[in-house]
Amino acid sequence: MTAHPQTSGYNFAYLDEQTKRMIRRAILKAIAIPGYQVPFASREMPMPYGWGTGGVQVTAAILGPRDVLKVIDQGADDTTNAVSIRKFFERVAGVETTTRTADATIIQTRHRIPEAPLREGQVLVYQVPIPEPLRFLEPRETETRKMHALEEYGLMHVKLYEDIARNGHIATTYAYPVKIEGRYVMDPSPTPKFDNPKMHMSEALQLFGAGREKRIYALPPYTDVVSLDFEDHPFEVQRFDRPCALCGAEQVYLDEVVLDDRGGRMFVCSDTDHCESRQAQGLRGELSGEAAQ
């Protein structure tokens, strides 16, 4: 863990306190109505819309000086956008940052949920590009709001039906819609559906921020999260037919790494912290080799 002096000239965590209170009110409402998209007066942030402004605003609103922050993108701490957001909070809040999932109190993420189960007291903040699960079936906000209010979710299953009719199976692989506590249908953000089961009954608080679309939604700890499916075509997650080449982990999400232009491939953990922790425990995959010792 590393501590950082805060850059002067900005309020703690960038946003002014008035704005933070506005965002916190939206977060509280979101927690009270799990899966419901709460509109909020999203502000411009010093990073582009679509690059995590929603997640950053949520993190800024809940961050305290004693928090320990971890930022991941695609499961990795060292991807450019994760680095950039982590540095931002180091500069404007001076908080401790970490790459270790277990040590973090707040984890901001784009596209993945860490492999290690989260525990009580941790908060997972998702960056959300399009919060509306019905958006590509119905482009109008006024109409989708009504559909949520009246629980008109038939269209969602029409899409899944079409998938099966065309492909023999459901062809949605990420941003796979879920139903929360039997009420609201929610977009889990573009995480691979592999991660959907981790949302169910999670001990951690899960917050979702969509800056450009100006919505916040939430899953309080121990919330019922069900991926939509048919009785005879139940929801299934991706399976990889091999373990991680570096740490030998199974039942984890793997990235495909192209090794050469002759079709050479290897598969490694997408969650870099998970992979490194396992390697530190001496666990090895087939390609980790002697050099790792």
Partner: peptide, 8 residues
């Protein structure tokens, strides 16, 4: 931005 997890 990287989208390789979804691309995978």
């Amino acid at each position: 931005l990287p989208h390789y997890v979804d691309f995978q």
